[in-house]
Design a protein around this nucleic acid. Structure first.
Lengths: 128, 128
DNA sequence: CATAGCGTATTACTTCGCTAATACGGTATG
DNA sequence: CATACCGTATTAGCGAAGTAATACGCTATG
């Protein structure tokens, strides 16, 4: 499942878990119907309290990202293709938000910031 | 000087002060060389502790927005957006690198990613 | 039923950001 | 010197957010 957390990063653990699950779904690594590790297993794996994972899972369920059927394991909810695209954009937005804020604070002009971003995007494309 | 704060808005008072000073400078109401009210006066006016104002002023000075000459009143600095830390530019690049990696991993193409980034940059510009 | 794995309600603890109280050192001005 | 502002170092108090400890109820499976 590849979930990793850094308890001393300032970002709450439960939010790190939520973000990574969302990202894995948006990227296709997790597909609708796929099972997630039980609360206790994951908490043990990450070395945190079960309640922390429970909280993350509940919020994800409330958001319709995960689905729970009583007695059955927690699974990824099915999402129609349109929503999946929107979700991808949301994920990207989240990553870009920090950079945008930094750019603004630095007084870096939009054109320049975009240029740097393009450069990095093409760099990544070539690597593969 | 027209500074007003709302202590029960969730937004820290020292940050409200910082934001308003920045805004007044950006809007031209405050110009380079203009004096700011002494820590104690402003704190009395706003009904908060002097330390709160002191904190706001110090952060603004650290950011190069205000200038202090010993024994002289605090004044608005002549600001030049181009004399900023290279270290922070690297931070921007690092931040953008993460986002680029995310875009790649999500399968979002360059055109779309750039569009979203532009959107966020302009959104930030409007906020202040 | 028994038991084993599961999720979580409840409670309490820890940490952290913000502000206030207090008191001290510096500088100008007479 | 005196005195009158000025900024702030230090300390403490407060509330909110995150996490942990504990114990309970549910479901499946034998």
């Amino acid at each position: 499942m590849l979930i990793v957390v850094n308890p001393s990063s300032g970002v709450p653990v439960f939010r790190q878990v939520m973000d990574q699950v969302r990202f894995h779904i948006a990227s296709g690594l997790l597909e609708p119907g796929d099972e997630l590790p039980p609360t206790r297993s994951l908490s043990a794996e990450l070395g945190v309290n079960p309640m922390t994972i429970s909280k993350a899972y509940n919020l994800l369920e409330r958001d319709g990202v995960l689905e729970r059927r009583p007695g059955r394991p927690l699974v990824v909810a099915k999402l129609d293709p349109t929503d999946l695209d929107l979700e991808k954009l949301d994920q990207l937005r989240a990553s870009l938000a920090d950079a945008a804020r930094a750019a603004h604070q630095l007084g870096v002009d939009t054109r320049e910031a975009v240029r740097v971003f393009r450069e990095l995007l093409e760099c990544d494309d070539k690597e593969k």
